[in-house]
């Protein structure tokens, strides 16, 4: 589970960058911005799931 999270985030980042360039070249700046936002939201949801897992485990270990 661990390392492929990083690869997923990197793949989404590169994909969004490429899509952004393609859409900008095609003259559709608004859709380019939409795809960037979509990629951002996907990555954010994954990272936030990890952050909540971290906070829960620290809370249970140190009984905060």
């Amino acid at each position: 589970m661990e390392i492929d999270l990083l690869f997923k985030i990197a793949a989404i980042g590169i994909l969004v960058a490429v899509l952004h360039q393609v859409l900008v070249r095609a003259g559709r700046e608004d859709q380019a911005m939409m795809t960037t936002l979509a990629g951002l939201i996907i990555v954010l949801s994954m990272v936030i799931k990890e952050i909540s897992a971290l906070f829960n485990s620290v809370r249970t270990i140190f009984n905060l």
Binding site: E2, I3, L6, I9, I12, G13, A17, E50, I51
Partner: peptide, 17 residues
């Protein structure tokens, strides 16, 4: 080089893991 904000997410993910 392409998307600086995603670099932040990768470093965040690595720190958490």
């Amino acid at each position: 080089q392409y998307k600086p904000e995603f670099a932040l997410y990768v470093s965040l993910g690595a720190g958490i893991i």
